[in-house]
Design a protein around this nucleic acid. Sequence first.
RNA 1: GCCAGCAUAGCUCAGUUGGCCAGAGCAGCUGAUUUGUAAUCAGCGGGUCGGGGGUUCGAAUCCCUCUGCUGGCUCCA
Length: 642
Amino acid sequence: MINITFPDGNVRQYEAGVTGLDIAKSISHGLAKKVLSAKVNGEVWDATRPITEDATVQLLTWDDKDGKATFWHSSAHLMAEALEAIYPGVKFGTGPSTDGGFYYDVDPGEHTISSDDFPKIEQKMLELARQKNEYIRKPISIDEAISFYQEKGDEYKLELLEKRKEEGAEITLYEQGDFTDLCRGPHVPDTGYIKAIKITKVAGAYWQGDENRQQMTRVYGITFPKQKELTEYEKMIEEAKQRDHRKLGSELELFMFSDRVGQGLPMWLPKGNQLRDRLMNFLRVEQEKRGYQLVTTPHIGKKDLYVTSGHWEKYGEDSFHPIKTPKEGEEFLLKPMNCPHHCEIFGHRPHSYRDLPLRIAEFGTVYRYEQSGELHGLSRVRGFTQDDAHIFCTQDQLKDEFLNVLDLTKTVLSKMGFEDFTAQISLRDPNKPEKYIGSDENWNNAERAIIEATAEAGMKTTTELGEAAFYGPKLDFMVKDALGRSWQLGTIQVDYNLPDRFELEYIGSDNQAHRPVMIHRAPFGSMERFISILIEHTGGKFPLWLAPEQYTILPISDRFNDYAAEIEQELAKYDIRGTVDDRSEKVGRKIRDAEVKKVPFMLIVGEKEAETGAVSVRKQGDGDVGSMSVAEFAKYFQEHLD
RNA sequence: GCCAGCAUAGCUCAGUUGGCCAGAGCAGCUGAUUUGUAAUCAGCGGGUCGGGGGUUCGAAUCCCUCUGCUGGCUCCA
């Protein structure tokens, strides 16, 4: 008998060789049906793999991240089986699960796989799934595996095996139906668990992620244990499509692109620009409260500036090429970032430690050469405005400055209606100290400052080792939107590099020169990217204070246009902005148009209202809320202003 | 940049295996209508079918190329 310890600490005894599935059966029949895999001593195993020694065991279901991963990984194998049946001779790269399904990289040989083929693949997968073929785990020697793939003629798998051979790793094959795959597992017990299947997209992907190597065809899919879950997934996708910021951006006339101006160069239309301005003003006020000083710097700078900063060497390829003065041939770069300019500002006169921390902020527009395939609506563009600031401070001030920035960022995000966010802390890779510049002492100090500050600010955090920049540790804000999607927004980065390169100094209380630390931070990240996320988060129904039009007055007929104009003037006194829809249309029509434009309040005025000096209020999405005086509406409005 | 796909009126889309002057709805304009909580009616205008080149008696339709867009990959200071 062996002892099995459960996550809640309970210990039960089983025969040696018991499987996760057996254990589930011993608990309840319902659980047994749901178990996909089992975490045995921290490692995810097949639910059907025998456990021979004492172990801690956690049974994994669809509700566990690892359970889903098992399910989707098994689905990748199922898809591979289907692909092999449909496209004979197809070769396989790797086929893992992802956060939202799975993919398989394949070399289809002379075939091409396009979205037209998806129904065919889905059908085949369903057919194979219904056969309830077991996933059979087969540990074999590496040489056996190599000869298996030599016979099959799959050079990709052979390459993977060669690598494993060097590492001396153990090899397992998994077999289901007529398909065998090199895989360390684990898998669900049989293909019958997979009930609902959707092939979602097909795309190119480089073999081993190396752009110099063979381009594979990556087929993406998602599967579910129940049809209903697939239906819900499709609904969510549909909702995301409706909220797509590119679609809403043009429907609500917020921004546009023009081929003639150039790709990735957004132009803000009046309504979008108002939104952008309001966001910037809001941040200006919050920054002022926290001791920031605004500066403005030019859009270009001498190439030498970026040679000094090191950006030319590191990112020259990703910048627009230098522009030259016509006569002297002096080289200038469109600025790809604001920090070198800000370093110059700091260095333009001597500083005392009493000046620190010095917080220099700028809504700085920068230009970066992004590869054409990278561009995407407002979220990835070639010209954008950062809500940038650089804080120059002493080592001792780091933690307080972090707290200051955390407070600012939290204020900003909650004001925007983002309630769910985490701080992702990126630290050094302890095994690769050569990757980083700056002293150990400084790094330790900075990392400690970040960890302590986030703890003190009561933030949810995750920590990533090896994700730090070469010049310092950083913290990124990960935000969940209304559809549960995760985005990286603001960022805070400690920098030991630039102060060195620009030889920045301050005179300490000891009358000696010292090097300040620099913090880069941007709560929004960039206005463009932030607004794209805000649009999708709100579905275009912006918080009242941001709405380009807060109300629109809908006169019942032309006869009340004058009254409507009076109301408009009246409301302006309350700082409430809006328009009058004086077209000779029926109210039904005016309401519909206002609803589509997502105007928060519709004020309907006709005979009754004109007589009593009232407005009939309708709330976007909610409908009629009744009649009230203008003063009452102003009050009602204030209550809805966050 | 790479792979795959797409590009027809301001927008959303039809356009059969290449074959008469390229269509619809919405939007726009003009007129009528004066309207009570999600689309009033009628008429009119609008497209070198993304640009260029080619194949063909004939191209929106087939081929090449450029531009842009979409989905991924790689990248992201």
